[in-house]
Amino acid sequence: MNMTDTIKHHLTPEILMAYSAGTLPEAFGLIVATHVSMCDTCRSDLDSYDAVGGVVMEDAKLANVSDDAFAATMKLISSGDSTPLTPRRSSGTLPSPLQDYVGGDLDQIKWKPLGMGVKQAILPTSKAATARLLYIPAGAAVPDHGHNGTEMTLVLQGAFVDEDDRFARGDVEVANEDLEHTPIADVGEDCICLAVTDAPLKFNAFLPRLAQRFLRI
């Protein structure tokens, strides 16, 4: 899955640190795990944040473990599952963490039309944030919109361009309240993205409020 050389837009330090600390809502955890599967730069930064966590744990105030803790742990070990672990690697378009949520690769995604050829599939995560796959036909646009919170978009296939820059496979765009944009897919190939939001998007023209609530955009 590695394709580091071509990735120009990475995860932010705060999101990597929060992933390392284990405090992110599930949907953001999913986009981090997916991007890190594709990007050596962010994997190495994440390793550094995990090392900081290791130091914090080393320096934690010691807690007394119970007298029989060691024996109880040995019992857990002997009663536990001993199936050998095999490395997780995806050979498809979607990295493994995403395949776990889709139940397979691209052909298993259950798309729902949003109009103008744009389709989405919402993935099952905890309610604190929403993860969705977006399908934008080559040359088509996602309706112009602003953001109430944070929106992170990871390109999985094709590329899109907006007011900010061009984003291709592996690139992440982080948008917040300050950015209003109209992402347009490159003409060459249909664009598929993973988009994660912690608040509903603000569409300027296309969708009435009711439809927005119904479609969970």
Partner: peptide, 23 residues
């Protein structure tokens, strides 16, 4: 060991799935 403890913490305290990068 920190990453193992962190993962267990997410399972036990946050009760949500924990997406992990590919190996």
């Amino acid at each position: 060991i920190y990453t193992i403890a962190r993962n267990r913490k997410i399972d036990a305290l946050r009760k949500q799935r924990r997406p992990e990068p590919e190996d």
